[in-house]
Design a protein around this nucleic acid. Sequence first.
DNA 1: AATGAATGAGGATTCATTCAT
DNA 2: TATGAATGAATCCTCATTCAT
Lengths: 190, 190, 190, 190
Amino acid sequence: MRQKDDNKSEAILKATIELLNEIGLSDISMSKIAKRSKVSQATIYVYFASKEELLGKLYVNVKEKMSRQLLYDLNDALSTRELCERFMRNSMRYMLDNKEDFLFLEQFLNSPLMDKLCLEDTSKMFTPLYQLVEKGKQRGEIKQLETMLLLTYLYFPVTNLVKAHFKGQSEANEENLQQIIQLSWDAIKA
Amino acid sequence: MRQKDDNKSEAILKATIELLNEIGLSDISMSKIAKRSKVSQATIYVYFASKEELLGKLYVNVKEKMSRQLLYDLNDALSTRELCERFMRNSMRYMLDNKEDFLFLEQFLNSPLMDKLCLEDTSKMFTPLYQLVEKGKQRGEIKQLETMLLLTYLYFPVTNLVKAHFKGQSEANEENLQQIIQLSWDAIKA
Amino acid sequence: MRQKDDNKSEAILKATIELLNEIGLSDISMSKIAKRSKVSQATIYVYFASKEELLGKLYVNVKEKMSRQLLYDLNDALSTRELCERFMRNSMRYMLDNKEDFLFLEQFLNSPLMDKLCLEDTSKMFTPLYQLVEKGKQRGEIKQLETMLLLTYLYFPVTNLVKAHFKGQSEANEENLQQIIQLSWDAIKA
Amino acid sequence: MRQKDDNKSEAILKATIELLNEIGLSDISMSKIAKRSKVSQATIYVYFASKEELLGKLYVNVKEKMSRQLLYDLNDALSTRELCERFMRNSMRYMLDNKEDFLFLEQFLNSPLMDKLCLEDTSKMFTPLYQLVEKGKQRGEIKQLETMLLLTYLYFPVTNLVKAHFKGQSEANEENLQQIIQLSWDAIKA
DNA sequence: AATGAATGAGGATTCATTCAT
DNA sequence: TATGAATGAATCCTCATTCAT
């Protein structure tokens, strides 16, 4: 018998994410995905039980890849400040290098679909990050506040910078990066 | 001859925003909007030329209302720090009191539809805010950085707190609000 | 506004029954029905909420018409034997004149769809018939057995004769009709 | 080389008949049959050239089995009346013991599919029965009418009793059986 | 023999929109 | 203004069947 072709599955996922960025969740359709990925519509259903499952799996896929890249090289040898910097740097790198993935996540996270597809919790992907911040708190280098709140200041400034960059309203360059690293550090440091 | 009925127009907009929050941009349809707002499908076209126009007008509507509330009472008598605080407080108040509006905006802003509907620029709605930050910069109370970047630190921490609140992961109370006000101030102050 | 067009509704029902006789429940489809009745597929949904509802309403329609014809002129002036004869005669007349209706009913009644579509009970349509048989029992002209069982002998011989006729295996003529009338009477008479 | 596996073929036929009784000719599909019989869809095509052939072979299978059981022990030693009784008794036994087979036949016979699949004539399966009735006619014990017509009175009362039994409207017990045996004999006896 | 992969065609239903009143 | 009727195009998904192993 023929073997399942990973290329096909990936072509479908790739086409999906492309289209999601071009036309969005509101206008995407299985037929457009099929056309773009050059398989028959029916073939999509060989790999994914439904449109929802396709989107859900895409989300988990992308999120996993993202977490790997955001957490890259956050080793214990670094100081808390350096860890923060590296995380923000990783984040910007990721968002710039994976524009489509990043924008898809933003779109998906803000859609009610997200809740509808009771997806497995992805927060555990970021536990290393929590631990990092908590260690900083223990050392007294970071304010004694909820970890989630502190992380907000490490992640969303990057998000906004990169989005502004994509819209041509700002530039995601080293200079701006260093600025937000400084601002965020000023915000959370003890 | 009967006049266009504002109630009907508003019923349609209200139904639309409700549905957008319940089922999202991807699943909304004119027939669902008609059913929810208790008018005929055809009636929607008396008030809005197309689905896209309906969504576009809804966006502008909501955005206007939002800007009014966020900028409320930001008068010159206040210190820069007080202005920041008031803005963040306004923001949280708005998001909590207008959950559906707020979440709609988030969903809409992150969707490619946003770009497709070449909507009139809404940034001018917030010019008072820019001026406020710029005045702070001139006085040397705030870091000499791009205004947009600085504003990021006033807006998104609130956004994130309230979203976490809606998800039951945190609580948007006075205590947490004061914390982020402090953090954000630490970030942007000179 | 445009008025609902009864012709359209009936055209759809007519097309449905025609197709059910030509290709059967197993092969019928909304698109074929649309094509045959010369309306858009979507138009069918203006009149019927779903394929199932369409079939269900068709069934009730046809059954009503049938009961009217089978019970035609079964008046009290007739003797029990005459009533039986008239009923069987009515039945044959109906089946021959409404071949499609009759065969549709046979097909439908023997399909699991019948049970799936919890249709309103149609047995009450035939209460006059029950009463007729019961009166015969009271008079001692008919065997003292379950009414339903006795009715079986009045209805199914006709059914089978007409079906055989349609298949070219027999002929539904006066001679054969009189024969089964006699046989059935011999069966049920006291 | 492996041999064709009778178990598999039978599993497919069994699954088909089950599904036909559950969801009917209108909703059955090769994929559902495959799932139910726990073979691959493609495997069905090893045993049956097409869906139509599958249904056709199933029909012939079931019909053969049925004729064997209906004609069981109709030997010459019995009187005509006894033969009729035995045939009706066999019929009821068969229908009760092989509910699915019986209901499938009823469904199939009343569907246009029956005609479409030009199936080999199955009437010859019942020649013993014809001969039996004809002998009765020759002996002057049975009315001088078309054999097919007379047989109707032996078969369909049973059919109806058992169907009513399955619907919970009557009971297919010895008492009711004896009643219809008597009625049918009254109908056809000379 | 057996089957997972693959697919074009078609399934039921809903879409956004227009028409006629 | 307001709306029920109408529809061509599109929706998601399943169909019967074939292919390659």
